[in-house]
Design a protein around this nucleic acid. Structure first.
Lengths: 168, 168
DNA sequence: TATTGTTATACTCTATAACTATA
DNA sequence: TATAGTTATAGAGTATAACAATA
C-alpha cells in the first residue's frame, strides 16, 4: 500500500505511456494496425480459439473483436471455420500468410525495442514485463471477483470550491 | 540488451496495458475525459505554460492539444491569457475551478489504484513508476538526440524478479 | 520566410444497442 | 430464455494539411 503521491506519479506514467504506444504503432504496416496485430499475436501465442475467448484475451467487447477479426480475415491472415461443437461459433486459426506476417511484425517491433532499450539490462526488461503483467492481473482480479460492495467511487466533490460547469 | 523472446513478452504487456487504461478512463467524469484530465494534470504539475510546451509534455501534435485545451477552457477549468512576449501565443493557467476538479480527479484515481494495488508493496509501486518513466525517456531520447548512454533513472530494482502477489 | 495556434478532415479503437442464429 | 457473434451508431484520441496572425 502506497500513499497518494506515489500513486499520482504512477498515474502520470500511465498517461505518458501513450507516447510509447503511438510510436510503436507507427511502425506497423498501414494494412495491419495495432488492433489487427493483437489478434494475430494472441492466435499465434495461444493457438486456435473462438471469438469469445479472443475477446477475453484482448479485454475488449466482443463487437470490437469482431471488427478486428473481420479485418484480418478479409486479408487472408486468419480463417474462420465452423465449430462442430456449437454452430453459433467459429474457430479462428492463423493462416500461413498470417503466421508469416506475425513473424515479420514481431521482428520489426523487437528491433525497435532493441534500439530504444539498448542500454537496458536483461533484468530491467524482465522486471518491467513482470510488473506490467502483475498490474494487469491486479486489475483483472478485482473486476472478476465481484462488482464490489459498491463503494468504488466514494467522495467525489466536497471541496469543489466553485465548479461552474462540472457536476460530474 | 535482451533477446527476442524477452522483447516479445514486453510487447505483449504493452498491448494488454490498454485494458488498465480503459478502466481508469471509465472512472472519469464524462465531462472530463482522459485527454482533458491530462491537460489539467500537467498544468497543475508544471504551472502556467504555452500551447507548444503543453503539446510537448503531452507528446502529441499541437492540433490535438488545441482541441483538448479548447474543451477544458470552454468549461472554465483553465484560462488563456495573451502572452505579452509573443502575441501569437497564449498563456494557459488553471482556474480555481480547474484546480478543484484536478484535486478531485486525483483523489478518485488514487483511490482506484489503492484498491487495485492493495497487495502491492511501496517498493513495487515505486519500481513500476521508475521503469515506466525510464521507458518513456528511452523513447524520447532516441527520437530527439541519438543512441546516447541515458542513465537518468537510477538503479531501483533488484528483487522484483517474479513477485507473484506476496511481497510484504 | 518561419512560427504559434486553430480548424477541417480522416482514421483507429472502443462501447452500447439492436439483431440473427443457434442452444 | 440465454448465448455467440455481427452490424450500426456514436464518442474519444490522434495525425495531416490548410489557414490565420504574428515574428
Amino acid at each position: 500500500m502506497a500513499e497518494q503521491t506515489r500513486y499520482e506519479e504512477l498515474i502520470r506514467q500511465f498517461s505518458a505511456f501513450g507516447a510509447v504506444k503511438r510510436e510503436i504503432g507507427r511502425m506497423m504496416p498501414s494494412e495491419c494496425p495495432s488492433g489487427s496485430a493483437a489478434v494475430l499475436t494472441l492466435l499465434g501465442r495461444y493457438g486456435d480459439m473462438r471469438m469469445s475467448r479472443l475477446s477475453e484475451l484482448l479485454a475488449v467487447d466482443m463487437s470490437v473483436t469482431s471488427r478486428h477479426v473481420a479485418h484480418v480475415a478479409a486479408r487472408g491472415w486468419i480463417e474462420r471455420s465452423p465449430d462442430p461443437a456449437d454452430k453459433r461459433s467459429r474457430i479462428l486459426r492463423l493462416t500461413p500468410a498470417g503466421q508469416a506476417l506475425l513473424d515479420q511484425l514481431s521482428r520489426r517491433t523487437c528491433q525497435l525495442l532493441a534500439e530504444r532499450l539498448s542500454d537496458w539490462s536483461d533484468d530491467e526488461v524482465t522486471q518491467l514485463t513482470a510488473l506490467m503483467a502483475r498490474l494487469r492481473a491486479s486489475f483483472d482480479d478485482t473486476r472478476a471477483h465481484g462488482p464490489e460492495p459498491r463503494p468504488p467511487v466514494p467522495p467525489v466533490l466536497e471541496q469543489t470550491t466553485r465548479t461552474p460547469a462540472t457536476t460530474q
